[in-house]
Design a protein around this nucleic acid. Sequence first.
RNA 1: UGGGUCGGCAAGACGGUCGCGUUGCUCCUCACGGAGUACCGAGGAACGUCCGGGCUCCACAGGGCAGGACGGUGGGUAACACCCACCCGGGGCAACCCGCGAGAAAGUGCAACAGAAAGCAAACCGCCUCCCGGCAUGAUUUUCGGAUCGUGCAGGGCGGUAAGGGUGAAACGGUGGUGUAAGAGACCACCAGCGAUUCGUGUGAGCGAGUCGGCUAGGUAAACCUCGUCCGGAGCAAGGUCAGACAGGGAACGCUACGGGCUGCUCGCCUAGUUUCCGGGUAGACCGCUAGAGGUGUGCGGCAACGUACAUCGUAGAUAGAUGGCCGUCGAUGGUACUUCGGUACCGGGACAGAACCCGGCGUAACAGCCGGCCCAUUCA
Length: 113
Amino acid sequence: MLAKANRLVRANDYRNAVRRGSHFSAANSVVYIALRDDSSPVRFGFIVAKTVGGAVIRNRVRRRLKAIGYELITRVDPGTDVVIRALPGAAETSWAVLRNEILGQVTRGGARK
RNA sequence: UGGGUCGGCAAGACGGUCGCGUUGCUCCUCACGGAGUACCGAGGAACGUCCGGGCUCCACAGGGCAGGACGGUGGGUAACACCCACCCGGGGCAACCCGCGAGAAAGUGCAACAGAAAGCAAACCGCCUCCCGGCAUGAUUUUCGGAUCGUGCAGGGCGGUAAGGGUGAAACGGUGGUGUAAGAGACCACCAGCGAUUCGUGUGAGCGAGUCGGCUAGGUAAACCUCGUCCGGAGCAAGGUCAGACAGGGAACGCUACGGGCUGCUCGCCUAGUUUCCGGGUAGACCGCUAGAGGUGUGCGGCAACGUACAUCGUAGAUAGAUGGCCGUCGAUGGUACUUCGGUACCGGGACAGAACCCGGCGUAACAGCCGGCCCAUUCA
C-alpha cells in the first residue's frame, strides 16, 4: 500500500500527468509518466472508471494497483508522477499478469533500475 | 419419516509476510511535518435513493386555491406509505397466505370478443290470443253455384310475453306454488340481497337476533371525480470560520442619516449607498463529523408492535476517497472416477455486494447452510 506522500491527490496533478506525460498502453492498462523538476517522492495515481465494474470490483483493482505501486517506489526516480489507468479487462486479469504488465510499462517509460 | 408454512441465526476459518486510515502516547523538528508504538477500522443488505424524520440554511400574520401523498378499525412511533392486533372479502383440509380494503342511490365517462340486446330499456329464436286469406276434412243447410260453423296443417299481419334456448366475466333476484291465452314479484311462501329501524354485544371496523318496507337498484374510482386526513422549499457541495483568486456590467429604489463632484441655492445628473439580476473566480484547510429516537441484559406493563425502570457496553470516519495485496494450511455444498455402498482418490475453492451527515422503514440482489415454532399425511406405541 501507499502512504499519502506517495499518492497523487490533486485534480491538477492528474491533468498534468495524463496530458503532458508520456503514455504506454497494454492489454489491461495505460500508464502515464510525467517528470517534475524536483526531488520530492515518487507519486502514484490511479484511474479506475465505471466501465471496469461495480464498486467492489473497482476497489479490488485499485488496491492491486496500489500494491504494485508500492513495489515500484524504490525503482522509479524521485520527482516522477505515475498515473495508471485500468481498462475493463483488468477485473478478470490475474495478479501475476497484471503485475508483470505494469512493471514492463514502467521499465520502458524510464525506471531508473 | 415425508411434505408444507412461518420466523430466527450466520455471512468460510486459521496463519505468515508486506502495507493503509483515524485516534492516543513517546521521540525528532522553529514550524509544516516525520519516525516508532498501541487500540480500533464495512453490510445484512453498507445497494436502490422510493417513503418518513432529525440536523442546517432560506421563506413564513392568518386563511384559501392549485398540486401531491395517503385511505377498513383500534393501537405503536419522532414520523411514515412502516409495524402490531383485530374486522371484512377471497384462497387453502390446515398452519397460513392474499387485498395498492373510503364513496358507484352527486355527476360525467368507459366496456374488446361473443351476443337480438351491455345500461335502460329493448326482443333473435321461441310461446300465446285475435285477425286475414289458402288447403284438407267433418257437420248443417241449399235455388246444387255455394253458404255457415267446427277441427287440423302450413303461411301472413296487429299485438301480448320474457317462463325456456343461445352468447358472455356480467343479461334486471333464486326455488316452489297461485295465476294466465301464454306469461310475468302480477300475487303468495321460504331463501339471498337492498333500504329503514329495534335490541344485545364490542373502544371500534363489525358481529348476532328481530321488525317493517318496496319486491331488485349490474361492473369499473390503479377513469375523471367526490369525501376525509396530512404536506412551505432546498439539501452536509446543507451551513460556518480562515486563506486565496477574479472583472465587471445591467435594472430598480432614492436623497431616505451623511459624503464627494458639476455652481452658493433650487431642479437635474454623475459617483457613493441599498436591493436585485447577469457575468466572472474558487472548490484549499478546519469545523459540521459521529453518543445516537444507540446496543445488550433483567424486571415491570401490554395479546403484540412497543413502552418504561435499572444495570451494563463504548463501537469506522475516508475525501482521487483507509478498512487491503500476495502466499500457505484447512474447508461446506459441488464435479469426475473407483467402490466391499461404509467410503477412497483427484479436480474445484464461496453468493449478492463497499460506509461518505445520521436514524426509522420499504424495495431490490443473492450461493450453500444451520436452528426453531406450527400444520397436514404416514409409521410405531
